[in-house]
Structure formats: structure tokens, C-alpha cells
Amino acid sequence: MTAPLFKFGYFNDEVSLIVAFVIGIFFGLVLEKGGFGSARMLAAQFYFTDMRVFKVMFTAIVTAMIGLFYFSWVGVLDLSLVYFGETFLLPQLLGGLILGVGFVIGGYCPGTSAVAISTGRIDAIFYALGGMFGIFVFGEMFPYITDFFYSTAMGKINLPELLDINYGLIMLVVILMAIGGFTAAEWAEKLMANKQSKARG
């Protein structure tokens, strides 16, 4: 076991900030190169005209998921040392719903707005200002919604544990779901392209 490198003391806190910056550069490069600096490209997902949000997200999730499993299986990575967020089901369902509504109205999510700002999209600045306002509202409301925020606590739980199904089998299901989703996405894009070219005559 040598990974996660930071947890095994290969470098200190100060160096971890440089690592954060370097990883961030690659994160930003990939997001922009994928078209995620454009709110229209992101919003196109929800009108079925360009499904790259779904394609990129699920390819990334499948890649990282398989990688995590592989490196822990060969004994390089101690998976128990990788930070795993606790599940609070209801707040996370509601938070996801609100963020999704905000996604199609605002045109970005937090990470993509950073890339949009750096490539000169003025609307993304308003989006980020709105983001801070929303966080401020949440912060001011926090004393009153604390109970809800900590409700339906399920602890550190993953899908294999929840469903009591083998980890590898869940991975296979996720991979098959992704492939099915990609096929549907390609089909939807073609359908919409035909519809649009017909509408233009």
C-alpha cells in the first residue's frame, strides 16, 4: 500500500496546496476542452440537442470507479483512507433537485462557471455572485434548518452495502447503465438533429 500518497506522508500540507493547484489546472483544461465553458453547450443537455454533459460525466465516473477498484485490488491503494462523504438522504435529494433547477436556469454548475469566467463569459460572473448569495441565504437559514440538514443520516454507505450486492456486480450494472445511456444519448441527438433540419426546411 502506497496510495493515497498524501495519507502515507509522502508530502506535507504545504505541498498538498501545490498539488491542488496542478490538479486544478488539468481539471480546468479538460472541462474547457470538453465544451463546458459554454452555458449553451451545458444547457443543450436538457433539450436533447447535445448530450455531452451526460456522456462526459458517466465516462468519468466509470473510469474513476474502475480505477479505484483496480488499484485497491492490486494492493496499491488503501480505499479506506480515501475520504468518503456520509449520506444524509433527504437533504441530498432536495439539494440535488434545487441544484438541478439552478443548473438549467443559470447555465452552469460551480466547477464549470470557474472555467467560463476565465474564458470571458460575463454571465458566469453573475452566476458566481448568485452562488455566493445562495450560500449566504443558506448560512443565515442554517440555525433554523439544522435538524433537517442532519436528518435521514445513513452514515458512510455505498450502493453495494445498501443493496447487499457484490461490489463487482454493482460496477457491472453501472457500466451497462452507462453504455445503455450513451446509446440512448446518441439516438436522441440524431433525432433532434433531424427534427431541426426539417424545421429549417
Binding site: 432536495l94 439539494g95 440535488g96 433537485l97 434545487i98 441544484l99 438541478g100 433547477v101 439552478g102 443548473f103 438549467v104 436556469i105 443559470g106 447555465g107 452552469y108 454548475c109 460551480p110 462557471s113 453573475f126 452566476y127 458566481a128 455572485l129 448568485g130 452562488g131 455566493m132 448569495f133 445562495g134 450560500i135 449566504f136 441565504v137 443558506f138
Partner: peptide, 8 residues
């Protein structure tokens, strides 16, 4: 949209 995102 940003406000909703921040809150959510």
C-alpha cells in the same frame, strides 16, 4: 440559477 445552485 447561481443562487439556487449555491443553496442546493
Amino acid at each position: 440559477g447561481g443562487s439556487l445552485m449555491g443553496f442546493g
